[in-house]
Simulated scan of single mutants.
Amino acid sequence: MGDSLAWITQDSGEVLFGAAIAAALFAALWLVKRAVLRLLPAELGGGPSVLRAMAARTLTLFLIAVALDGATHAVAPSGPLLRLVDNLFTIALAVQGALWLRELVLGLVRRRADANPEDARAVGSAIGVITVLVNVVVWLLAAILILDNLGVNVTALVAGLGVGGIAIGLAAQGIFSDLFAALAILFDRPFRVGDVISYGTSTGTVEHIGLKTTRIRSLSGEQLVMANTKLLDQQVANLRRIEERRVVLNFGIVYQTPPDVLDALPGHLQAIVAAQSDCRFDRAAFTGFGPSSLDFELMFFVTVPDVDVMLAARQAVGFAMVRRFAELGVAFAYPTQTSFTAAPGGQLIDPTQITERPR
């Protein structure tokens, strides 16, 4: 400390030069911060500006530490004073870095959340949990960095934190699994509140996405509660995002149908589908020889995703097929069996011609 006082009293000109440099650097950095806050809008790209938030969280203490550190490179202060400035810069840099990292992560999360306001309650809960986790991580890193630069042996501390973290993770792995699954649902958006989803053998409307479970109102009325991890482990079909619905009608006609009528049948089916609104014909084709029918398949798309529109279109096409087939004289097939009577030699016998054997 005596060396520092001696340098200040004996080299006053150099001290004033260093102070002027520090003041100039601080003023320049402060003006840059004000310019960034003035030029960057509060909202950017449909969400809060992350860069502006980071600039707003820049501490004056950090600007002072940067200015003093810059000034010490221009002048030659004594050893103790130089170490003091270096330690101040290290502490300020660690604290400022933690604040910047926190604002960056939370700002990106908030932008993602603001893009989907429908799940505001669940997203708010998720942001609260993420904030706690981010605060713990960034301030632990800042504390370790500060202690390490101050000469403290942090190896044992880091090892202890690692062992403790593993123990906590193993003890609460189920909770953390559901938590991260909830975050995946909220930010990856495979579905959201109000969507109709199908998974396993269940179908229902998503009512709430929580941090551990998702609640779904099934078609039969009851509420299903699924753990987020188990839900994401399955194949989930989001029925709300259907753009168009495919309808497949399989039917059979009798073997007695004339060949020319069979040839014209796909064209009649295409005309039936084309006559319906919101329907797009795909194909109509013969698929095989059934036990008691000539089998056909009609496929078309309903271009409106509403399930009620699809059901109405399928009904309209089916009824139109019945009417058109009646006009063409085409009969729908149904399971039948025909029995033939034969003589011992294999010749077919007409049962109506058999007379009763005389007694």
Rank of each mutant, 00 (worst) to 15 (best):
I216S: 04
A42R: 14
R240K: 14
L298N: 02
L145K: 05
V206F: 07
Q223N: 13
V134M: 05
V225I: 13
A126F: 15
G194S: 08
R314P: 02
G318N: 13
A320Q: 11
L59K: 08
L106K: 09
L40V: 09
A237V: 15
L106P: 06
Y199D: 06
R192S: 11
G169P: 06
V136E: 08
E207W: 09
A271F: 03
G329Y: 07
A156K: 02
S202G: 09
N228K: 04
E118C: 03
P305H: 07
D308G: 09
I197G: 00
Y199K: 02
D282I: 13
F300T: 09
D263F: 13
L101V: 09
G162P: 04
L59T: 11
S202V: 07
I168F: 14
F319V: 11
M226S: 06
C279V: 06
N238A: 08
L141D: 10
G70R: 01
A342E: 10
K230G: 12
Q347N: 05
L39C: 09
A227F: 05
A24W: 08
K230V: 10
N149K: 11
P351F: 10
K230Y: 12
G160E: 05
F281E: 02
D148Q: 14
G346L: 11
L211Q: 01
R215Y: 06
Q347V: 11
V75C: 08
I144N: 03
E356P: 06
V32W: 15
A142I: 05
G169C: 12
F332N: 00
V134G: 02
V317I: 11
F17D: 09
P305I: 10
F62Y: 15
L16N: 03
V137K: 08
S177R: 13
D178Y: 01
V32Q: 09
N87E: 14
I209L: 07
A167Q: 03
L61D: 03
D233C: 02
L157H: 01
I349D: 08
M310D: 00
L294H: 02
R240A: 13
A122V: 08
G47M: 00
T341A: 11
A237C: 10
V105W: 03
F187K: 01
K212M: 14
L265Y: 09
A76Y: 10
V273Q: 01
L101F: 12
T214V: 11
L186C: 01
S220A: 12
I197Y: 09
D119T: 09
S125Q: 13
L82D: 01
D188F: 14
F89E: 02
F340C: 04
P190E: 04
I216A: 07
L5F: 14
F281C: 02
V137F: 15
T355V: 09
P77Y: 05
G221T: 05
Q315H: 14
S202F: 15
E356S: 10
N149W: 06
L265K: 03
T203F: 13
Q256T: 10
I354V: 15
L262W: 04
E118S: 12
Y255Q: 06
T58V: 12
R324L: 00
V304W: 08
G13F: 12
E118N: 06
